[in-house]
Structure formats: structure tokens, C-alpha cells
């Protein structure tokens, strides 16, 4: 019954291996809310926010990839240089909670909690992020699409830690937008991330808060790729409207205390249209 504060990845893995039922604490912005509200009793806690290996990031120009350690905070993601490589994730970072929350909250924490409203998750889905998991027994890499299995559910096993994610550095416009009841300090009612890949000539879209997991929109993506002009940054108004309809159709929203299914479906269509137009401003 104790709080362990490892200062190396080896120590952290030893800790979660010895205490497989321990709560893993990163920034605390999700876990401590549950603890404060007595919705969760903690006995053993492994604190991972002072593990240097998890606090690092690495840009590899040769492979055009960016590795973000699980302990990288949203404050770090929203600023350059990281923001310049993954703008959609940086925009999402800027909408996470408040400055206080962004100073503490981490990329790995968003993945660990795996809320459908997690702001970092739609950009990770749209970017086809690879999630790196590590345990005393070794490592495994899981595509984001297979990592999240339901609301607040993922494939992470007891004794395993999220090491980080690898993201492609994509050439092309990308962005994230969401709606909620106010501008600051708000959980998304509906959110959309869009990544235009000028090299692969593809458009990738992911929806948040409108399903049990983050949803990609294969039909909308295929349609957009056939309609947009990557060189001239052009897309017709009618194509934007059809893209919005297909994105909304991909949503699987529910009624809950934050909003209604009908509003959420409408909202993701509006947000998807807005992002496609920002990516391809010419009509």
C-alpha cells in the first residue's frame, strides 16, 4: 500500500510488474478527479510523470516521424517545435482544459483514460499513430485504431505502460476543432480532426465524442480524395456539403447529459465541412 515515484523506465516497469493492480498516475487530471469524488479508491499508485524516458520526444527527419513520450504534456505539444510537425495535435492540445491542466496532463494520460471526448485522440486517429506499449517482458506496437476498444477501454494490460506514440510528419494542411458549451475549459460535445496528405493525396478524418471510440470516416475520406485539388488547394462547395453529410453519417452518437445524438451528428458535419474548407480554401 504505497505511492511509488520511479525516476527511470526500468524502475517504473519494476513497479508496475510488482504491483500489477496499481493505479498509474501521470498528470493526475483524470485520476485525481475520480479520487477526489470518491469514485475510485487507490491503494498502490505508480507515478510516471518523473520518468525521463517518458518525458522525451524525438523528431526523425529521415523517416519523417515524431516520437512523443507518454509523459509529454499538452503545454509542450501546443508549442513549437512539436506544434509545427503535428499541427492538428497541437490545436487539440490548445483546447485541453486550461493552462493548469495542460501543464500537468499528458499524451499518455489521454491514451490511458481513452475517453471518446479525449481531445488528443482524434488527431492521433487521423494521423494513424502507432502506440508503443512496454512491460517488463518486452514491447509491442499497436495501431491507434486497435488500441482504443471502447469508452475508457483500451488494450493496455496490467503490468504494461504506455511508452509513447509515433506520428508521421505529414506534408499538407491539418487541423482540429470541437464544440462545447464554452470556449475555455470544456469537454468536447463533438470534435473532428482532419489531415490532408499532399504526398499520398489523401484526406483523413476522425471524429471524437460521437461514438464509443474515435471514428474514422472511410467513405468521406475516399470521396474527399477524389474531389479536392491538392495543387490548387481547391474544392467545390457541393463537394464540401457532401463530405459533411458522409462524415455525419459515420457518427454513432448517443444522447447523454452533455448533448443529444441529433445535435452531435449535426455538429460533426458542420465541423468536418469547416475543416475541409480550411484545408482547401479555394472554391
Amino acid at each position: 500500500m504505497t505511492v511509488l515515484v520511479p525516476t527511470s523506465l526500468a524502475e517504473a516497469l519494476e513497479a508496475v510488474s510488482a504491483h500489477p493492480d496499481a493505479a498509474v498516475l501521470a498528470g493526475g487530471t483524470d485520476l485525481m478527479v475520480e479520487v477526489n469524488e470518491r469514485r475510485r479508491e487507490v491503494s498502490d499508485v505508480v507515478v510516471v510523470n518523473r520518468v525521463p524516458e517518458l518525458r522525451t520526444w524525438r523528431h526523425d527527419p529521415a523517416s519523417a516521424t515524431l516520437f512523443l513520450g507518454a509523459g509529454v504534456t499538452w503545454t509542450e505539444v501546443e508549442a513549437d517545435p512539436i506544434a509545427g510537425w503535428v499541427p492538428a495535435l497541437a490545436q487539440a492540445a490548445r483546447t485541453v482544459g486550461s493552462p493548469q491542466i495542460r501543464h500537468a496532463g499528458t499524451v499518455g494520460g489521454n491514451l490511458g483514460t481513452c475517453s471518446p471526448a479525449g481531445d488528443g485522440l482524434p488527431p492521433l486517429a487521423a494521423l494513424d499513430a502507432t502506440v508503443h506499449l512496454v512491460s517488463a517482458g518486452g514491447t509491442r506496437d499497436v495501431p491507434f485504431a486497435e488500441f482504443m476498444t471502447g469508452p475508457k477501454r483500451n488494450v493496455l494490460l496490467h503490468g504494461e505502460l504506455i511508452a509513447g506514440v509515433t506520428l508521421p510528419v505529414v506534408s499538407g494542411w491539418q487541423g482540429y476543432t470541437k464544440v462545447g458549451v464554452r470556449n475555455a475549459m470544456v469537454i468536447a460535445t463533438a470534435s473532428v480532426a482532419l489531415v490532408a496528405d499532399d504526398v499520398a493525396q489523401s484526406v483523413r478524418v476522425a471524429l471524437g465524442s460521437v461514438g464509443p471510440v474515435i471514428l474514422r470516416c472511410p467513405e468521406a475520406e475516399e470521396f474527399a480524395a477524389g474531389e479536392v485539388d491538392f495543387g490548387q488547394r481547391r474544392v467545390a462547395d457541393a463537394a464540401v456539403a457532401e463530405f459533411a453529410r458522409l462524415a455525419a453519417a459515420a457518427a454513432r452518437p448517443i444522447d447523454d447529459h452533455r448533448s443529444t445524438a441529433a445535435y452531435r451528428r449535426h455538429a460533426v458535419g458542420v465541423l468536418a465541412a469547416r475543416l475541409l474548407r480550411r484545408a482547401f480554401p479555394n472554391g
Binding site: 505511492v3 493526475g28 487530471t29 485525481m32 507515478v47 493548469q100 491542466i101
Partner: peptide, 9 residues
């Protein structure tokens, strides 16, 4: 770093 004391264990 400015943080919320209520969210720090």
C-alpha cells in the same frame, strides 16, 4: 509549473 493543487497527488 502552474497546476491545480487538487489534481496533484
Amino acid at each position: 509549473q502552474l497546476v491545480c493543487g487538487c489534481l496533484v497527488l
